[in-house]
Write a protein that binds this DNA or RNA. Structure first.
Lengths: 192, 192
DNA sequence: CGAAAACTACCAATTAGTAGGTAGAAATGG
DNA sequence: CCATTTCTACCTACTAATTGGTAGTTTTCG
C-alpha cells in the first residue's frame, strides 16, 4: 500500500527531529508520537538509541554521497557543480517549519553522545565530502570556471566549514536568505 | 583571593561542559560534581536551567564583545585584526582535552532548548560579531591590507559562518591543525 | 502455521526542581 | 555591647516526570 516501511518511517522521523532539536533533544517517546506506534515498537526495530543513530548516520552518509557523486560526474562546469552542491545545503535549511541543519553538523555538535562507530561515520562523512569538493574544484580549475588555487584540499575544507557553519548561523537569525548570501559570497571568492 | 565566587565557578563549569557536550548533554548533577557542591546548591544560585543558560549567554556575549572591540580599536592593519579575531576561535578549540566549540555555536545547534530570551541573546551575538567583522574588513579595505569587496556585510557573514563551521568540522576530524588551515585559506582569499 | 511487528505493562536510572533545615555572617536595635 | 533577627550559602532528602530499555503477550499476514 501507500505505507512506507516502518523502519524507514522511524528513521525519517528521527532525522527530522534531530535536525531541528539535536540528538539529546529527541527521545524514543517523541519518535513514538511522531511515527504513531508505541515506544516499545521502536525498540523492536532499533534496540538501542545508539543503534538507531548509527543506522541513521549510515543511511544519510550513503544517500548524501550518492547525490553528490551524481553532481561530480555530471557534464557541467566545476563552478556549476559547486553551486549545485551548495544548493543541497540550501534545501536542508528551507525544508521544515523551523530551520533544520545538516544531520552531520548537528551530530558533530553532540559528538560526545555517539559511540566509536558513530564518530567514525561522522569522520567518514567529512572525509568523503572533502574529497568530493576537491574533485569539483579541480574540475573547475581545469575548465577555467574557478580560479586556480594552490591547495584544493584546503579550499575544500573551507567550503565544507562555511556550509556547515552557514546553516547554523542562518538558522539562528537570517534564514535561507542569509544562507544564500553566504553561498554567493563564497562562490564569488572562488571564481575570480 | 584564592577562592573564586561560587556563581562564577558554576558558570565556568557549565560553559566548559556545554562547549564539549552541549546543553542537553550537561545536567545539574554534572555541574554538582564538577564544582564540588550539592545539586540543590546550584539551584540556589540559578533556580532553573534556563536561568543559568541565560546568565551564561549574557556573560559570554559581553566578554566576547569586549575582547573583539579591543581588537577592532587597535592600531594595526585590518588584516591583522581579522587574524587576531580568528585566533580567538583557534584558542577555543585548543583549550580543553576534547575539542571545544564556540559556546554560541553549540547553543545555536540546540537553539530549540532555549527560551525566547536565550534565542534573542544568540541573535545579538551573531549581530554584534557580524558588525565587528564588518569594521575589521572596512579597516582592511581602507589600509589596503584586504582586497576591496562589494559587500563587507556579506563577507562578514561568510567569515563568521566559516569560523563557526570550522570549529565544528575540525573538532570531528583534523583538530586545531585543520582549523588553522581553514583560517589561513580564508584570510588568503580575502587578501588578494 | 510461524515469524515479524505490534502491543501492554513494567523497570531502574536520571532529570529538573522543591521542601525544609543548619551554620555562620551581617545587619538591626535596645 | 549584646541579643535578636535576617540573610546567604549550603546541606539532606525528597518529588514528579521522563529517560532508555525489557519481558511477555497479542495481532497481523504471507
Amino acid at each position: 500500500m501507500g505505507t512506507t516501511d516502518t523502519k524507514t518511517r522511524i528513521l525519517d522521523a528521527a532525522q527530522c527531529l534531530i535536525q531541528s532539536r539535536g540528538i539529546n533533544g529527541m527521545s524514543y517517546q517523541d519518535l513514538s508520537e511522531s511515527v504513531g506506534i508505541r515506544k516499545a515498537s521502536i525498540h523492536h526495530h532499533f534496540p538501542s538509541k545508539l543503534d538507531m543513530l548509527n543506522a541513521l548516520l549510515q543511511r544519510y552518509q550513503h544517500e548524501f554521497a550518492d547525490t553528490v557523486d551524481a553532481i561530480v560526474q555530471s557534464k557541467i562546469t566545476g563552478k556549476s557543480k559547486l553551486k549545485r552542491y551548495c544548493a543541497l545545503f540550501q534545501g536542508t535549511l528551507a525544508t521544515g517549519e523551523d530551520g533544520k541543519t545538516c544531520l552531520c553538523g548537528m551530530m558533530i555538535a553532540e559528538i560526545a553522545s555517539l559511540d566509536d562507530s558513530g564518530v567514525q561515520k561522522i569522520r567518514q562523512f567529512v572525509r568523503t565530502n572533502t574529497q568530493q569538493i576537491v574533485a569539483m574544484i579541480e574540475s573547475g580549475m581545469a575548465d577555467g570556471s574557478l580560479a586556480t588555487q594552490k591547495s584544493p584540499k584546503a579550499v575544500a575544507e573551507l567550503v565544507l566549514a562555511t556550509l556547515e557553519g552557514g546553516l547554523m548561523v542562518a538558522r539562528s537569525s537570517g534564514g535561507p536568505q542569509q544562507f544564500d548570501s553566504i553561498v554567493n559570497q563564497l562562490i564569488s571568492l572562488l571564481t575570480r
